[in-house]
Amino acid sequence: MAAEERLRQSQKMEAIGQLTGGVAHDFNNLLTVIRGSVDLLRRDNVAPEKRQRYLDAIGDTADRAAKLTGQLLAFARRQTLEPEVFEVGQRLDAIADMLDSITGSRVLVRFEVPDAICRVRADVSQFETALVNLAVNARDAMESEGTVTIRLCCDARMPSIRGHGPGTGDFVAVSLSDTGIGIAPDDLERIFEPFFTTKDVGKGTGLGLSQVFGFAKQSGGDVDVESVVGKGSTFTLYLPQAESTVPGEPRPTGQQEAIDGEGRCVLVVEDNISVGQFATQLLEDLGYGTAWVTSAEEALDRLGSDGDGFDIVFSDVVMPGMGGIELAKRLARDLPAMPVVLASGYSHVLAQEGAEGLELLRKPYSASQLSAALQRRIAWANERNG
């Protein structure tokens, strides 16, 4: 037993080392592009076309960094999901052309979808991303030539997976089978680890399947894999089945794409000094008035009993003491007319409880995304309050 415990600890440390090494490697590559572009922008007499090229490089690299952190948070089950009830067959039909394009002309994608209605409650975007990641994995396993079969099964039972007991209740099972090279038995146990990949250097980050795993677990399901070397693999995504649609909170139209703050006053609640300074400067450049506090407790003091002088509260989620979600709940109780927008790049609270009824802005956010979120919430509050 002691030897087994030492072995498990050794494997755990190896996995942590692989994860941190992979993160450091990928982020160093991204930071190299950003740092180099900034240095070149600081040079005198940079031609306008070159300046735009460097700015585009910084923007594109920031987008890739955001995608990388999103994949890591998905595996860690710490991403913030936006679950809704949807019909799985309809979503498969909607992304069929995209899957055909991703897998290539030499890969035949077949669908076996029953006539029965199969509903789940999950994040639609993450669901589609999971299918894309599975399809890309299948394409690479077949060296871009073969057949991918996607099957949908309603009222399924989730079996025992990786030593965990079987799931309770009904599940929707989406299986993706390929005719590729299969997975070696020794690799099956590690296939969902971040940055673990059997592909050649430069052909994969090892984060696609970890996203599928994290999304499934965070949604109350799981993902199973069966494989025979030389004959192919089958990945099955299990998601809890939903009985009926649940109406979501309608989002008002109009002004959502507007940028100008038109003098509206925003109370910024952010404990990180750099982020707080950046957010207030960004809002002021967009035409908003701002006040900045570093804690939810201080925000409640500034708002007082009537919130006079402020049009909206923009708060971080994770802070020492009272967090952003608790602050939003306090304001909904004490100042129901005060709209709130939350921002977070990582929150186990939101990952577990969701953000239903709240306007959530994911970090990193752009200037237009921030202003649109604020104006959308202000418009929503105005409509609700008459």
Rank of each mutant, 00 (worst) to 15 (best):
R330E: 15
V38A: 15
V266K: 12
S233P: 06
M13Y: 13
C265M: 15
L134A: 00
K217C: 14
I378G: 12
E5M: 08
A156N: 08
S177Q: 07
P185R: 03
R110G: 01
A24E: 11
E326R: 15
E298W: 09
S305Y: 08
L31Q: 15
Q211R: 09
D271L: 14
V229Q: 07
K67N: 13
G22S: 10
S305L: 11
W380M: 13
A122F: 01
R43F: 09
A242N: 10
P83D: 04
A66H: 05
Q241H: 06
I34R: 15
S210I: 10
L209Y: 03
Q71T: 01
M322W: 09
V246C: 05
L239Q: 07
S344G: 13
F213A: 13
P364R: 10
Q255N: 13
G276K: 08
Q369P: 03
S305P: 15
G386D: 11
Q52I: 09
V293D: 02
E353Y: 11
A94F: 14
E87S: 07
D155Q: 06
V148P: 02
P247Y: 13
A296V: 09
S244M: 08
L131E: 00
A130Q: 00
A3I: 01
L19R: 13
A116D: 05
R78L: 12
A343H: 14
E270A: 14
E257N: 15
M1P: 11
G309A: 03
A296H: 08
V23I: 15
D170V: 03
I95P: 09
A47I: 00
P185W: 03
C154S: 09
D311I: 09
G204V: 07
V318T: 10
V113M: 02
G169W: 01
A258I: 11
V340M: 08
F111Q: 03
A343E: 07
A216I: 04
V124W: 04
Q281F: 04
T280Q: 14
G321Q: 07
L81E: 04
G21T: 01
T198A: 07
A373V: 04
E270I: 10
P250Q: 09
L300V: 12
L7P: 05
E193N: 03
T234Q: 04
L99E: 01
V88Q: 07
A62C: 08
A299C: 11
F213T: 10
D44L: 13
A367D: 03
V269G: 06
V341F: 11
D140P: 00
G309P: 03
V268A: 13
R91G: 01
G70N: 08
R376L: 10
R377I: 07
E82C: 06
T61W: 05
G304F: 04
A62R: 09
Q255I: 15
L41I: 13
E383C: 10
Y365I: 06
T103Q: 08
D200I: 07
D44Y: 07
L283N: 11
Y365L: 11
T205F: 06
